[in-house]
Computed example of a mutant assay.
Amino acid sequence: MELSIIILSFNVRELLLDCLKSIFQNKTGRDKWQVIVVDNASTDGSLEAAKRAFPEIEALQTGKNLGFAKGNNFAVPHIKADTILFLNPDTVVVGDVIQKSLEFLKKDPEIGALTCRVELPDGSLDYSCQRGFPTPFNSLMYFSGLSRLFPKSKIFSGYSAGYCDTATTHEIDCGNGTFLMVPKKVGDKVGWWDEDYFWNGEDIEFFYCVKEAGYRAYFFAGGKIIHFKGSSSGLWKSAKSKVPKEISMATAKHAAEAMRIFFKKHFYQNYPPVFRDLILGAVTLLEKYRLLKITVGVKHE
């Protein structure tokens, strides 16, 4: 077995089936892949439908919604390959992106994490597939809108990294968990997904730990997937499924909590108390603003 693909799914039945279809349509006879679907206590019959349509998958049921980090970790004891691909269920694999990504990663033992080009349904880039870390300064530039005004500036666009050439493969600080390929030895070293995070921010933490462990992370431009972003949370316009408002509200709260967790883990001690309070207060204001938008029916993007 050369690759274990882990797909954590929550109430996106049709999207999950489309994702699996795209995987097996693009899999060749030479590819030795293990495909694991972890169902995070869906209520739409996702896992049963997936097993009927694709009996070759390995199906796991968590029993309750464990969140993204713990849900993915649930599959780790079952992996059989030396390389793992964490793949979101609301994605469509295009062509041989998995094979090319795997080939590129295996050429360099210093690569600890790799993501490919992730496009939204309109063909635009999902910025989170190649970005910087959300330091307090980078976050301020992003949420103030200055990164949009100056997308090619390394100063103002440190988080969204609009200055990078996405037509070429390059080293990055951080990608996302939508398509995350990682050697098993690296996952073992960093302890896999940090379960302090429930939903959101855990991919940033993963990349941070990979870099701290001395490995490099890469954006691979030689292939792509399509991401119907927000289909489980309902927070993005690119979502392909209707999500109950209470789910979106809970997800927005988890996103804000993820910001607090990341700041406290990595930057809290670097600032005097007054700045700590200001930063955490800003996160609370952002959380309230996002909850208000959900209440009136406005999505993030």
Rank of each mutant, 00 (worst) to 15 (best):
L285Y: 02
R148E: 00
G201F: 02
D188K: 07
F220Q: 02
I172C: 12
G175S: 11
G158S: 10
D194S: 10
M181V: 05
W193S: 12
Q269C: 01
F156R: 04
R260C: 03
R290H: 13
H170T: 08
K240D: 02
K264W: 01
K265R: 09
K242A: 15
S231T: 07
G214A: 12
Y268R: 06
I225F: 02
G214F: 13
H266M: 00
T178G: 13
T168E: 15
T166G: 09
K237A: 13
C209H: 14
L235H: 06
V210N: 02
I204M: 10
C174L: 08
M259W: 06
S231G: 06
E287G: 01
W193K: 11
V182K: 04
K185G: 08
D173M: 09
H227N: 11
R260V: 10
A221S: 15
F207D: 09
H266L: 00
S232V: 02
K237P: 01
A255L: 12
P183E: 04
D203E: 14
G234F: 00
L286W: 01
E171F: 02
Y289F: 10
K240H: 09
Y197G: 13
L146D: 00
L180P: 03
Y215W: 14
L286A: 12
K224N: 06
H170Y: 03
A217W: 05
K184N: 03
D173G: 01
K288W: 05
N176V: 09
S153V: 11
L286G: 14
C209D: 08
L180C: 11
M259R: 05
G191H: 13
G145D: 06
Q269Y: 10
P272L: 07
I261L: 14
Y218K: 07
Y268G: 00
F262Q: 02
F179Y: 00
A217C: 15
F220L: 09
S241Q: 13
G175T: 12
H254M: 15
L180R: 04
L280P: 04
G145A: 08
S233V: 09
F179Q: 01
